[in-house]
Design a protein around this nucleic acid. Structure first.
Lengths: 193, 193, 193, 193
DNA sequence: TATGAATGAGGGTTCATTCAT
DNA sequence: TATGAATGAACCCTCATTCAT
């Protein structure tokens, strides 16, 4: 339910009223209970049903990609941004950060089915690059997180302090700075440019 | 109030009961009202009083530092990690992310007094490095955020999904990977290595 | 509706859901409204349609009986037990006890059409016995209730605490003790008076 | 809580609103939750705390009584009537009948701590009377229930159909008829057997 | 200053009732 | 006639806030 996701992201679980979800969804409060047995079940459904399709697309892209690791990495991060980071779905990231402590089982699910799978995509790309000598050898596990961090923060920013910052950054500039720093730090051969 | 901060960080504002704060603080619920006129005022006080001392220390260090930009940046990030990232105070980051939407005025305050000032510290370091030719020329504003992102994510991770991840990363490895990627991407002279 | 009666008896009016009645009856909830305009109307119908046939049979028996008052009384109580007390219909007794206060008009109906008519049957038997000298003269109105009480309690027991009592009484022994006490009394020595 | 007992007796558990209990008790709805953790706990407390003192008094009387079984039985039944039957506490009887099915654990408690103990009092009296030859030998267990039934019905009547019956019986006449029938039986001629 | 009993508005949930099919 | 999705009023329960002590 898109209305529920938006409100949960905006206000958090506890501060979101079923009344408001129902109103925004254009149904009555009782109707929600025809599809979800409780507020908590609705919360879980919102997270689980929203996030999975994105991963599937990422995995498909990885399987099909031909070309060097540099372009694959860039394509992967761009795809992720377009399909997820730039859409409302990315609110799930903020939501999980806020509510993981209150819903350990949902957090566990999210970790196993989203985080682990998502990191696997980046790991695959890095390992290809290292194996072919395009990327420097480095601690891959840490690198995955370092690589993803700026994009995650961009999302988090959007759903938290973004509205407060008058002079907001341009996401495109931010992302290209990220790529620039990342790749020029990462590449062995390209350093001479 | 440390009890209040911990609980707000752990559960969020709406899900935290004054009863629990009072119990953990070892006082009665009524006593809280002798010091804070409402739950919301307590929330604001917790954020404002917790965060400011850290910035002061950062600014002092910047004023006193002698040496090259590389070591200054590293020292700055290390200091920030020790004084803030590794302590309970960093929970404020997770708290602001979760609650910014519900407390626009607190978010505004936080943005102006914490984010802007904190970014100013990093900006100063970067600008010194660029001016002296140690750092490549780049979009400084974006770079600030990209540089801080991995440390922010490390904090966020600790207060959200960290407890779910069995094979948690070692923060030290993560941070050194971060520095490595960052500096080797950033430096002009070092590239030839 | 037998499903409705059973559930009303088991749980009471307020605690019985139309959903459950419909399910047990094998129809949909909406279908109930084709036959009863509200839950309350269903309740009334269940009581009124369940109880009347029993009285008719009692009255027929009284009209036809030949013989002494003692055997008539015993036959009457036995018939009542077989046709009503031992069947699910007797749940109406427990139901009226529980709900009389909430449905004064149904209680009024029940009183006038069931209690008054039923007591009339016993009164007729007692008066025959007193008139023919078989029974002692006594306050007939009180005696009617005293005579019926043990059978009523047997029914009530079945629908209330019966399931809790491990060593439940045998109804036949109970009833024969009742007839014995009723006809002969408790005392040994005083009989000669 | 006397207000709660009265309303539970009058309307049943499900049909009684906490709002009404609170109003009748002269407190606010929230105050009830300072003393009872739920509506169900209030229900249980009302039953358990209301009924026990009566049994204690009955047991004391039995222990102290000197005299013949006939007068003891009569005194016992009279005491029970005065302390319990004629007071509001007797509403518990109607309440347990109505709600036993919905609260099996309360029913179990009531059976073990009230019914069994209460029957024990009457059993003791009957056995004394039979042992001394004052009472006829009979099935004691059944007799207990038969003896108590009219008094139970008098209580039940009061809380159910009593208000509907214009020409209500006089309880005193009813009780003396009960004693008379119980002790002497119905029959005139058969006494010589 | 400190307490904790009392309050009552507000939210999650249930369920009798309706109505388009 | 029969269905079952949708409704919304009503109820139990929570918890921020107050106040007498």
């Amino acid at each position: 339910m898109v209305a529920a996701l938006d409100l949960f992201v905006e206000r958090g679980f506890a501060a979101t009223k079923l009344d408001d979800i129902a109103t925004r969804a254009g149904v009555s409060k009782g109707t929600l209970y025809l599809y979800f047995s409780s507020k908590e079940e609705l919360f879980k459904a919102v997270i689980q049903q929203g996030i999975l399709p994105v991963l599937v697309q990422g995995e498909e892209m990885l399987a099909q990609h031909q070309g060097d690791a540099r372009s694959l990495l860039q394509a992967m991060l761009m795809l992720w941004w377009e399909l997820f980071g730039a859409t409302n779905l990315s609110g799930i990231v903020k939501l999980m950060i806020s509510e993981a402590g209150n819903f350990p089982d949902v957090a566990q699910y999210y970790y196993e089915n989203v985080i682990v799978r998502g990191r696997g995509l980046i790991r695959e790309v890095l390992e290809r690059g290292v194996a072919t000598g395009q990327f420097r050898a480095l601690d891959v596990e840490s690198a995955i997180d370092v690589i993803l961090a700026p994009q995650m923060m961009l999302i988090i920013w959007r759903y938290s302090l973004g509205p407060c910052a008058c002079g907001q950054q341009n996401p495109d500039v931010y992302l290209s700075t990220h790529f620039d720093l990342l790749l020029n730090g990462l590449m062995v051969e390209e350093k001479k440019q």
